[in-house]
Amino acid sequence: MSTVIETQGLTKHYGPIVAVESLNLCLQAGEVFGLLGPNGSGKTTTILMLLGLTEPTAGWARVLGEDPLRNPLEVKRRVGYMPDSVGFYDELTARENMRYTARLNGIPSSEGEERIDEALAAVGLSEVADRPVATYSRGMRQRLGLTEVLLKRPQVAILDEPTMGLDPEAAHEFLAMIRGLKARGITVLLSSHLLQQVQAVCDRVGLFHKGRLVLEGSVDALSERVLGGAYRIAVQATGDGLERLLSGIPGIVRVVQERPGTCRVEAQQDCRAEVARRVVAGGGQLLGLSLERATLDDVYARYFQEARHEA
């Protein structure tokens, strides 16, 4: 495994405003990495610095071993980028838009046509390729953005908010296409504030908060760290002292009574059997017992809750 993207102390200030603060990031070849964070937390600025489109205040970045400041053309030749709210020349057709991109990339026109056809087919736009982009829906524009990335046959794809503004069905399809990028051996860096979706495709995620990367790792590892346990068990039972009864079980981190008769249990391992045994042994009636995997939403909510408490 080789390092594809690496940053060291990457910092960007806009006057007194801190956009990104000493970011250390390391992406291995072939992985899908998710940059997560609320709007304005520095995700897009980070991406622009990686592409050499904006100058860092301090620190450095290497993309595919190249410095995006010194050699941006080489970086941009090998990296596909889809900006958030991607725009096209509306009066031109999708194919003409892609032809322009191919020409800007210096791809000879015969090869370019081939690549355009292939990329359009991969995202399912072949049928409508000769319609003006003005007639395209939001989802189709987004897919055209991905066409442009595929057209370059990049080693790295950087997608900024790829599912923003898409309906759930379209977002789902789009995520499948992102998985397709991984299957082609393309390293993917994507940014999003929609955690559930990111969780479905990312190998690793990094959480941004006010320009800082506050958490980094796989979704499971993060929930282990922030939530204290990766397993969440919902218990429905009648009987007194349910909370007390359950908190004695080894491996359980905390028990929260949500409503009378319903508890949420956080545990380091799957201890449903033990929970059932205790409830029944305690004279209660077990009505329901289900395991919920922790979602990024939980991690996120909990983390920022704690961050606020500390502040």
Partner: peptide, 14 residues
């Protein structure tokens, strides 16, 4: 306005 600039500048050109 058309949001095409960042896309064009992300191509290998100055």
């Amino acid at each position: 306005m058309r949001r095409t600039l960042s896309r064009v500048l992300a191509q290998p050109i100055y």
